[in-house]
């Protein structure tokens, strides 16, 4: 009954829309149209084509020879190890990035939120990598991490330690590109945390101090719990960003050594454009899309307001 009533009310409300409301709606659509058109053309149409290709045996060299293969591409993902291995490397990479970015970004935000001198300069310094192209960053780190002439190995040997292979060691390469990505993204995380920190009313920390809390206790009992939603948001943004990382694998390691940095997007790229297996690459893309969508939905569910201030 209630559902019917509610629908009735909605219908009645729609019917009651005044000419002015109708005109406003038309104007709104006119303003939205250019963006919607571009979105449709460059996002949703390719997305639909990709979804279709995921069920095809399809090569970019000879698109006309494409043929429907049902779920073969998806069953191949289970049959061969490449997807599993690439996803494992990607998740490990994302975990590394998040594990570095969250504490570091939070610490930087605390610093930027303080009244300490030089925070203006620090703000600029940490934001610089964020606005720098991933290609430039990757190239720069290639120089820094170079086994023979790199600056970092220079420091390592100056300290009397053995020269490190970094990007050419299967044990170190993934760690190094995770560190590099974290270095690039930490400023963004810090800015998000800073926004969260500045949204927490000052009186809460003051009330806690009056209640007998030390600065560390205020941080632990008040600030960090109140920033849980910001933290979750940063975790999700960084995870999704890391799952889609391409430049480090492409420019620094070629997915190697021994596929240790074969991130999923790079793997998709190689499958489609090097192996010329666009159908399988499309299926991998669909899988990635589902994963990212799942994470985003989980975030929205977890971020629903439980309390506010």
């Amino acid at each position: 009954m209630t559902a019917i009533d509610a629908q009735g009310t909605v219908a009645a409300a729609r019917a009651r829309r005044t000419p002015r409301q109708k005109r406003d709606a038309r104007v709104a659509y006119v303003f939205l149209a250019p963006f919607l058109f571009l979105l449709l053309l460059f996002q949703y149409v390719p997305l639909a084509m990709m979804a279709k290709n995921a069920f095809m045996d399809y090569s970019l060299l000879n698109p006309d020879a494409a043929k429907f293969v049902g779920l073969l591409n998806f069953s191949d993902m289970l049959y061969f190890d490449d997807a599993r291995e690439s996803l494992a490397a990607t998740f490990l990479f994302a975990l590394g990035v998040v594990a570095i970015v969250i504490p570091l970004g939070f610490a930087l935000a605390l610093f930027l939120d303080s009244k300490l001198p030089a925070r203006g300069i620090v703000r600029t310094i940490i934001m610089l990598p964020v606005v720098t192209s991933a290609v430039v960053v990757a190239t720069m780190w290639n120089f820094l991490l170079d086994p023979s002439n790199g600056l970092i190995n220079g420091v390592v040997t100056a300290m009397g330690l053995p020269r490190q292979p970094f990007l050419t060691s299967p044990d170190q390469a993934l760690v190094m590109i995770a560190i590099m990505t974290a270095w690039q993204q930490v400023g963004f995380a810090a800015i998000l945390f800073l926004g969260g920190l500045q949204g927490v009313p000052k009186e809460l920390a003051e009330a806690a101090r009056i209640d007998g809390a030390t600065k560390a206790q205020v941080l632990w009992n008040i600030t960090i719990p109140l920033l849980s939603r910001t933290t979750l948001f940063v975790v999700v943004i960084m995870t999704v960003f890391s799952l889609q990382a391409f430049a480090p694998a492409f420019l620094m390691t070629d997915g190697g050594p021994r596929d240790s940095t074969n991130l999923i997007v790079y793997h998709i790229y190689k499958t489609a454009f090097v192996m010329q297996n666009a159908g399988y690459a499309s299926a991998l893309s669909v899988l990635l899309l589902v994963i990212v969508l799942g994470i985003s939905l989980l975030q929205m569910w977890l971020l629903r307001a439980r309390w506010n201030y």
């Binding site: 009313p201 009186e203 007998g212 109140l226």
Partner: peptide, 18 residues
């Protein structure tokens, strides 16, 4: 503040929302 033996009530209540 904790060493002063005081308690304070704020204008905006300053209750811990969590």
């Amino acid at each position: 503040p904790r060493e002063r033996g005081i308690a304070m009530v704020f204008q905006n209540y300053a209750l811990y929302p969590h």
